[in-house]
């Protein structure tokens, strides 16, 4: 394995998970600076530190590349890795925009012998399979309305906080908050949206970056999306970084014969029983909770 970018998620999740896999060797890493790369290499026993990420991607002794950088680099790095014959695990968010995503997809299709994978949306992995089966079996009947709220916030707005990379359109592109993560999960149960109408709010229009330079903030701190889904169900999706003291993240799926409610905890969704048919008609609480084919390393 070679690592391009070794931020928090790579250090806390990907590398420890890969360490548990037999036969995996950590060959090279390139991080934001050689110094930070050396710290990561020392901590995890990575053999070589490169100053340029291209040297990781091209290295003949690297078979697969884990890309853990910010979204503005994902497309270029993925294309380079696939062109060099490397398998790719790329951090979410996939890309700056759909055009970049499609270039990555096309490149992966030109190299079907290589694995091209994105880091999965985690919050509902434990219950995805249960939800999918319940909906397919008609547990709620016809799906009519979906309410998804990802607004849990531990604190109020900090107007003086430095610009976060997720708030910087030059680094994050069209991505907004954790919208893509939740949408990816929702698609697993309900399929893709057909049409959307959105309203957003930038709470702090100008922020300084870590160097003190002022930036106009264009990525919303809050967005409400109305969407139509397959079968013309209506979805209201709410994502926010400013709704302190709001309720826990949750999803309601209202059907013609029942309702499913999914409550997410900070570490993910509750295990079996998270999806309950609790109103309208009384029926047994759904069981299950398999991870839908996803296997956590443990």
């Amino acid at each position: 394995m070679g690592f391009v970018g070794a931020g928090r998620n790579t250090r806390s999740r990907h590398i420890p998970g890969l360490q548990k896999q037999p036969g995996v060797e950590f060959v090279a890493v390139a991080n934001r600076s050689r110094e930070s790369g050396e710290r990561v290499a020392k901590e995890f026993g990575i053999r070589r530190v490169e100053a340029d990420w291209r040297d990781v991607v091209r290295a003949p002794d690297v078979d697969a590349v884990c890309i853990g950088t910010w979204p503005y680099t994902h497309c270029e790095m993925t294309l380079a890795a696939l062109a060099a014959g490397k398998h790719v695990l790329c951090e979410a968010r996939m890309a700056m925009d759909a055009a970049e995503g499609r270039r990555m997809l096309e490149a992966s299709r030109r190299a079907p012998h290589l694995v091209a994978q994105l880091v999965p949306s985690p919050p509902t992995l434990e219950v995805d399979s249960t939800l999918k089966v319940l909906l397919a079996e008609g547990y709620v009947g016809e799906v009519l309305v979906v309410e998804l709220s990802a607004t849990r916030q531990p604190s109020f707005l900090d107007r003086e906080a430095p610009l976060h990379w997720r708030q910087d359109v030059a680094l994050s592109g069209h991505n907004i908050l954790n919208m893509g993560i939740w949408y990816e999960a929702m698609v697993r149960w309900l399929g893709p949206a057909k049409r959307v109408s959105a309203m957003g709010k930038v709470a702090v229009p100008r922020r300084r970056d870590e160097s003190g330079a002022m930036h106009e903030v264009k990525v919303p701190d809050h967005v409400d999306v109305l969407a139509t889904l397959a079968g013309d169900a209506v979805a209201h999706l709410r994502f926010s970084a400013v709704t302190a003291l709001g309720p826990a993240n949750e999803v309601w799926i209202f059907g013609s014969d029942g309702t499913l409610r999914l409550e997410a905890t900070p570490s993910g969704c509750r295990r079996p029983g998270a999806a309950t048919r609790s109103c309208a008609k009384s029926r047994s609480r759904p069981s299950g909770g398999s991870a839908g084919g996803w296997k956590r390393s443990s």
Binding site: A95, A98, E100, G101, M104, S108, H174, Y183, E184, A193
Partner: peptide, 21 residues
């Protein structure tokens, strides 16, 4: 989980929301 096809789906949604905004 998660294929590049899945990724393009969420990026298309993301683009549509940005365009609507």
């Amino acid at each position: 989980h998660t294929t590049f096809e899945d990724g393009v789906r969420y990026m298309e949604f993301t683009d549509a929301v940005a365009q609507s905004l």
